[in-house]
Every structure is written in C-alpha cells, then in structure tokens.
Amino acid sequence: MLPLFVVNNYGQFNHLILRALRDLDIDAKLIPNTTPVEDVIAGCRGIILGGGPDISRAGMSDQYIHLKKPVLGICLGLHVIAQTFGGTVQSGQKGGYGAVEVTITDHDTILTGYPEKMQVWASHADEVIVLPVGFNRLATSSICGNEAIAHKELPVFGIQWHPEVSHTFEGYRIFENFNHICQDQTEV
C-alpha cells in the first residue's frame, strides 16, 4: 500500500506529524512542498498539509488539493484549503496560543470518537473567517469560529489546532480517522 505524504510547510511541528503516524504504525513520508504533482499522484494514498509560518511559503500545497486524493490540512494547511475553495483567511481578533477548548459540532468524519468538548493546543494568528462554499463546520471555539471544516462531498478536511503535539487531547484519533478515510477511498 502507498504511504501518506506529509507536505512540509516549514512548521516546527511538521516532523511530529510523522512521529504521530509512526507511533500508529501508519506508513508516511515527509515531502518538500515543491514536489512535482505527478510524483504526488503516483506516490501516495492521501495527503497531509502541514502547518507553517507563512502562506506565501506553502509552495505547491494548493495544487495537491485537487488530485482526487484525501487531504487533511493542519493550521496553515487548513488556510490553504480554505483559500483554494474561495473562503477568507485573516488575522483573528485574538490569536490561539497554547491550550484552547474546542466544541465539536460534527462527529461524522475526521472527528469521530471525540467528546463534545476537549482541550487542544494551537499556535496561530490567522484563521478561516469565511467558510468556503461547499464546506461544513465541524468544530468551533471562543477563539475562532472555524476550528475544523470538511468539504460536503470530497474527502477534504482542515483543522486549526495541532493534533500532532502531545498536549492535544487524543490527537492520534484524527490521524487514525484520516487513515481510515484514505483506506476507504483506495478500496472504491
């Protein structure tokens, strides 16, 4: 089976995504965000867009969203997804740094198995202000309205917090859920 690709957007936690997947025994590889599209199509069964300091350094991340493969965007990865589908990303009224309590409003996909409220860790000034057309909101918090979003039809998901850091409550579930979604897609 092909590995998952983790797209390195220069975030300090990108290698922890790899570790989280390794701890779950899910095969994954970190790739530069300049990797040619053909190589991404041929090489993986799902794509995780990592976080990073600046959307202008997200390379070809936006192109990887349209390859008919499941995509999970984390932090900056979420912002890339939102912009690509016509949403708005801007500085929030307040940044989310450290612990944030999120309320999950849709448990059906990437957030299966989580309680209604939980504490996660975040590190962001920007946020998705306007949800793109065709997306549902999955989670919210007092810091930011769109903590997690999902496309209504495509397997495209975005999360504002960092499931890969050890301080986030049961962050591994998101990777397990995403892995299942990728497997389901492969079988179709």
Binding site: N8, Y10, G11, Q12, N14, H15, L18, R19, L30, P32
Partner: peptide, 12 residues
C-alpha cells in the same frame, strides 16, 4: 536525533 535531521532537511 530524528527531529534534528528532519528539521534540517525541511529547512526549518
């Protein structure tokens, strides 16, 4: 250790 390698590769 691992994070040292991967951060260097990624240009962090």
């Amino acid at each position: 250790i691992y994070p040292d390698c991967i951060e260097s590769e990624g240009g962090i």
